[in-house]
Design a protein around this nucleic acid. Structure first.
Length: 491
RNA sequence: GGCGGCGUAGCCAAGUGGCCCAAGGCGACGGUUUGCAAAACCGUUAUUCGUGGGUUCGAAUCCCACCGCCGCCUCCA
């Protein structure tokens, strides 16, 4: 069975085959860096990270490009708003580039914690002004664009296929237009390729049409083409960007190159809060930093980054995810269950006896792997893929009850966790911080207390023993009595 | 108004014509284990899939109607 992906362009699942054998060019719309990333960003970037990981698992040589929008993204209506980053710069009294720098770093920090692998290329819009101007010139030459008073607009009526991705036509859009129409445009549906900058606008560049700055849609067409070629295999992004952003990207690139721009369009659904879309403009967002620290009124505790990842993967990327503390809590519990199982396997593996894996068990493992791959091949059904990981957990925990499980068996299980749960899903770590490694002083102190408690238990002074355990629990440390020794971990 | 989508147990969620008296997770409850816990294991927790019709030998899955909810059509992952 081969990988099938739902292509938004054709509105059905299609077998995925790259344009060039063995190689995949993948472009995903990145963030506009004027604020900290929130859970909505997490859903999108975890989803596409998981796709890139799975494509690599299948053996493809993937080039993953994800832009950083640091200029040109306007605050509101139809090409008439302020630049988002320039606006934030005013608020924070910093240069726009300082804002972009700060939030870019913040974004990468958050994505690293979510175990999203860095894209191969993270191009900045501001670093591609020359290429963007070139594309505008080309569109003007070809007659798809017109200049008015230092600004250049794309003339939608000239591109017959405009609307093919989002399923709309220009006439309908006119009828339902809610936006006050710019006087400069020939047609309200036309969009800005280049905007004339007022003298006080900080972010501006010289162009054949005077000082100005690029329209938002331009950067993605330009950077996708520059790094991945005129036709790219996969373009991903949030559903909310399907129109107008992606529609405009298609118009620009295909009008200029006269070639199909993207073969597979993939869109992830939104994160909602109380069924309302989480977004910066609505102000109902919860940042990832808040989730990691627990510092938000909707949160009852701090959550591990990979619990967020597990939450995202628990549902399908094309389904909306309604956020609540309860769903995150459930994801955290499930994540801990898997983590503890993996750690237990590795611990037992350290002094396991040699031997061979049983035939029946080998078959069970194979069937879990098959279930996993079939699920992923079916338009990335991570919900079922995750379920197969839990089957592995249960199977494994049963084996672990038996202390003489041999090393070949444990190694096979560890490999499955590492490859499927780790390399593909990104929720199993290569190494878990053992309780002591991060802080020798803490480890020493806790071990001292465990020793005292063990002595108390040996002489059956259980009240004293329980007091130690309870007090440690209040400090966020859980004790677990094993057969021979007592282990501790942070809650 | 136009386009797209959703409604499955207490919660999250997969399944889209027979393998479904519906996967998996969380929670809850009972049991094993434990000095007691924790973790783990075993078991229970939807004869039913928003409501009402219809098609079919057979429907959560197809069709119709109705109810409720969401996204896009303006910036947003």
């Amino acid at each position: 069975m081969t990988l099938e992906l739902y292509n938004s362009l054709t509105r059905r699942k299609e077998e995925f085959q790259p344009l060039h054998k063995g190689k995949v060019g993948m472009y995903v719309c990145g963030p506009t860096v004027y604020g900290h990333a929130h859970l909505g960003h997490a859903k999108s970037y975890i989803s596409f990270d998981m796709l890139a990981r799975y494509l690599r698992y299948l053996g493809y040589n993937v080039t993953y490009v994800q832009n950083i929008t640091d200029v040109g993204h306007l605050t509101d209506n139809a090409d008439e708003g302020e630049d988002k980053i320039a606006k934030q710069a005013e608020i924070e009294k910093k240069h726009p580039m300082a804002i972009a720098e700060y939030y870019t770093k913040s974004y990468f920090d958050d994505m690293d914690r979510l175990n999203c692998l860095r894209p191969d290329i993270s191009p900045r819009a501001s670093g591609h002004i020359i290429e963007q101007i070139e594309l505008v010139k080309k569109l003007l030459e070809k007659g798809y664009a017109y200049e008015v008073n230092g600004s250049v607009y794309f003339e939608v009526a000239k591109f017959a296929e405009y609307g093919k991705l989002s399923g709309r036509n220009v006439d309908d859009m006119l009828a339902g237009a809610r936006v006050e129409v710019s006087q400069e445009k020939k047609n309200p549906a036309d969009f800005a390729l280049w905007k004339k900058a007022e003298a006080n606008h900080i972010m501006q560049w010289p162009s054949p049409w005077g000082m100005g700055y690029p329209g938002w849609h331009l950067e993605c067409s330009v950077m996708a083409n520059k790094y991945l070629g005129e036709t790219i295999d996969i373009h991903g992004g949030g559903l909310d960007n399907k129109f107008p952003h992606h529609e405009c990207e298609i118009a620009q690139a295909e009008a200029a190159n006269e070639k199909q721009f993207v073969r597979f369009w993939l869109h992830n659904n939104m994160v909602t809060v109380d069924s309302q879309k989480m977004s910066k403009s609505l102000g109902n967002f919860i940042t990832l930093k808040q989730v990691f620290s627990g510092a938000h009124e909707r949160l009852t505790r701090a959550y591990e980054p990979l619990a967020v990842r597990q939450l995202v993967l628990n549902s399908h990327y094309r389904s909306p995810l309604d956020f609540s503390d309860a769903v995150l809590f459930a994801a955290q519990s499930g994540y801990e269950k898997i983590s503890q199982c993996v750690q237990a396997v590795r611990k037992q593996l350290a002094d396991a006896t040699e031997g061979e894996i049983g035939k029946e068990l080998a078959e069970e493992l194979e069937s879990i792997k098959t279930k996993f791959e079939e699920a992923m091949n079916d338009d990335l059904n991570t919900s079922v893929a995750l379920a197969s990981m839990f089957e592995l957990v249960r199977l494994t925990n049963n084996l672990l009850e038996n202390t003489d499980t041999n090393s070949a068996t444990l190694t096979a299980i560890d490999n499955m966790f590492t490859k499927l749960g780790g390399d593909v899903l990104g929720i199993v770590k290569d190494e878990y911080q053992s309780a002591g490694t991060d802080d020798n002083l803490l480890d020493g102190l806790v071990k001292m207390l465990i020793e005292q408690r063990t002595i108390a238990r040996q002489v059956k002074e259980f009240a004293a023993a329980d007091a130690i355990r309870d007090q440690l629990d209040e400090l966020g440390i859980t004790l677990e009595d094993g057969k021979d020794d007592t282990a501790w971990r942070r809650k």
